[in-house]
Amino acid sequence: MKAVFLAGGFGTRLSEETAVMPKPMVEIGGRPIMWHIMKMYAHFGIREFVVLGGYKVDFIRSYFLNYRARSCDVSIDLTSGNVEWLDACTDDWRITILDTGADTMTGGRMLRARHLLAEAPFCLTYGDGVSDVNIGEVIASHNRSDKWCTLTAVSQPGRYGALRIGTDLETVQGFSEKGASEGGLINGGFFVCDPMVLTQIDGDDSVFEAEPMNRLIERNKLGCHIHTGFWQSMDTLRDKHVLEQHWASGTPPWKIWSEAPRDTIAQWRRSA
């Protein structure tokens, strides 16, 4: 199963950082926040990623093209040009990075990637929010339903538009305006989508969270998985500082993965 990242926006509310890089590449604890999200998905066995870039997409390409050099010890023979990696890369990921246009909206980005998404259900997420949500449970919830899209509903007061959830606690019936419902459930991302969602998107100007989602609601095809644990987006510099404080504590709530020592990984690969 693939995890698709919406990673092409301008991130204007975090302009202190996004003037030089796309928001998913803003670092928490010395790693891009998108890396943290990828580690979450990999923990649940999802290691194939499709990054829908736009604004400063070359920054994302450069990071992952040089990922092994950033992560592993290396021996370089300057005379011959030979490079020997001294240990294995612990992240066995496959990452596809697409330039979906700087001005393309979220739905349009998905539509531009339909050649990669049309064959099977896929996960979809924003490149700027972390959580301790159980991705496996979200997938299982989606598979039990007849919905075309299942989103993760989370609690967050204030500046987000709240969701109206049906009495079955599994169906989204509509949205409220931002600020209309303090403490209500909101769309936290971490979607699971069937390819049919792509048929509800008109083109580059289509905002996935607007008309396509409303069409899904009209068809009773938008479901939700309620998550009561940790969730935090990084919309502002204040949000970034909050996440940095969590990481500095040594026990950030979203760090659900564990790291094996590099020498252990290398030894296992040699024996295999």
Rank of each mutant, 00 (worst) to 15 (best):
N66F: 05
Y67R: 13
R68I: 07
S71R: 14
S71L: 12
S71K: 15
C72A: 03
V74C: 11
V74N: 08
V74P: 02
V74F: 09
S75G: 09
S75A: 14
I76V: 14
L78G: 12
T79K: 15
G81F: 08
G81N: 06
E84H: 14
A88W: 09
D91M: 09
D92P: 10
R94Y: 11
T96L: 12
T96D: 13
I97C: 12
D99Q: 12
T100W: 03
G101Y: 02
A102R: 15
A102V: 15
D103I: 10
D103N: 11
M105R: 14
T106Q: 00
T106N: 04
G107I: 10
R109H: 05
R109A: 13
R109Y: 04
L111K: 10
R112H: 08
R112S: 12
R112N: 05
A113T: 02
L117F: 04
L117G: 03
A118C: 12
P121M: 00
C123S: 13
L124C: 03
T125A: 04
T125C: 15
Y126W: 05
Y126L: 10
G127S: 01
S131Q: 01
S131Y: 05
V133K: 08
V133L: 00
V138W: 05
I139C: 09
A140F: 00
A140D: 03
H142W: 02
N143Q: 14
N143D: 15
R144V: 11
S145T: 04
S145V: 11
D146P: 04
D146N: 08
W148K: 07
W148Q: 01
L151M: 06
L151H: 01
L151D: 09
T152G: 09
V154R: 03
V154T: 10
Q156H: 12
Y160H: 14
G161D: 02
G161T: 10
A162L: 03
A162P: 10
T167M: 08
T167V: 12
V172S: 13
V172I: 15
V172L: 10
G174Y: 00
F175Q: 13
E177H: 06
K178A: 13
G179Y: 03
E182L: 08
G183V: 04
G183L: 03
G188P: 00
G188F: 05
G188L: 02
F190V: 03
F191S: 12
V192L: 10
D194Q: 13
P195S: 04
M196T: 15
I201N: 01
I201K: 08
